[in-house]
Amino acid sequence: MAVTTLRLNGAMISAREGQTILEAAREAGTRIPTLCHLDGVSPVGACRLCLVEVNGRLMPSCVTKAAEEMDVRTDTEQLREYRKMIVELLFAERNHVCSVCVADGHCELQNLAEELGVDHIRFDYLAPECGVDLSHDRYGQDDNRCILCTRCVRVCDEVEGAHTWDVAGRGARSRVITDLDRPWGESSTCTSCGKCVMACPTGALFHRGASVAENVHDRAMLRFLITAREEKRWTV
């Protein structure tokens, strides 16, 4: 197997052929913030938090393959500022009120805001009117908390194979929908496996009956399923 070497924040690191910058950086112990990325499903490069500077250009590290001669910087002042702005834009876009959210304390958006030092929002809160779908007997969907990362879409399509979820609308009016925008509970494709709920980074998809801070996402379960299938290894 071919191995390449590249520079990461000044230090030389090695990467296996085909590895992304994100994977190589993680192996080298360097954290790059991510949000739409989910191990085991295809990367889409949509949230732009994992942008890194490669030879002076900004590239999404989750989809950019590590290559020889790359000089990668993961934590420049420009990147820190951009990441902060992106998280602020997400908070401003829908109605993210942590204190009454089922995912409070278990939310990747909240964690990122803390990590990046977001202490106030410099943009207008758009406060759109979003619906809550409680038609499914085990799960609920709250569009107010959705950040359109499409993890649910990808995990449902690629891991479960049901493709119940998809995105409707364009721009800021985009929403994730089940089937052809039918209530979730009436979906004829949903297998009620719950993988979308495990994958959701925020409180947008939750177990019914969970109260504030009670909705814990089971990412380990997804990891287990994926390694079991890909590597036929039934232990994580």
């Binding site: 992106i86 834009l89 401003a92 876009e93 800021a172």
Partner: peptide, 18 residues
């Protein structure tokens, strides 16, 4: 641009609105 943004990436989807 705001109306025509596809909504996939955050800077364009939300940034153009702001």
């Amino acid at each position: 641009c705001m109306d025509e943004s596809c909504g996939k990436c955050v800077p364009c989807r939300s940034g153009t609105v702001q």
